[in-house]
Simulated assay, not measured.
Amino acid sequence: MIKLSITALLLASSLTAGNLSFDSGMIKAHTEVFGDNTIDPMVKKAQSRLSMDDKADSLHGVIEVNAAELFSDNAKRDEHMHEVLESGAIPKISFDIKEMVAKGGDKYTLKGALSLHGVTKPISFEGSVSEAGGKVHIVAKSSLKMTDFGIKPIKMMFLTVRDQVDLNVDISLKR
Rank of each mutant, 00 (worst) to 15 (best):
H137V: 10
K145T: 02
V161M: 10
D36N: 15
P153M: 10
G88Y: 05
R49Q: 10
F22S: 05
A46M: 15
K28L: 13
L110F: 05
S143C: 07
P122R: 12
T109L: 10
D106P: 05
I2A: 13
H60S: 13
H137K: 14
M42R: 14
V119M: 09
F34T: 14
H30N: 10
G118E: 03
A29F: 15
L15Q: 15
D148W: 13
K45T: 14
S143Q: 14
G88A: 12
V136W: 04
K28G: 06
A56F: 06
H80W: 06
E32S: 11
I97G: 02
F71D: 11
M26N: 09
V161F: 05
I151N: 10
E83W: 00
M26Y: 14
V33Q: 09
V84F: 01
G35C: 11
G35T: 09
D73C: 08
K135E: 13
R77Y: 14
I63C: 09
E32N: 06
V139T: 03
T16G: 00
A102L: 10
E69K: 06
I27R: 01
F95D: 12
S142A: 14
I39L: 15
D78R: 03
G35W: 14
D148A: 11
S115P: 03
I90K: 12
I39Y: 03
K28Y: 02
A17H: 12
V129T: 07
L4W: 05
E79A: 10
G112C: 02
H117W: 07
K121S: 02
F158E: 01
K98E: 15
D73Q: 14
L144M: 07
R77F: 12
A29E: 09
L85W: 06
F125T: 13
G104K: 11
D23I: 03
F71H: 12
H137Y: 12
I90N: 06
L114G: 02
D53K: 01
L85N: 01
I123T: 06
L20N: 03
L9H: 13
K145P: 02
E86H: 15
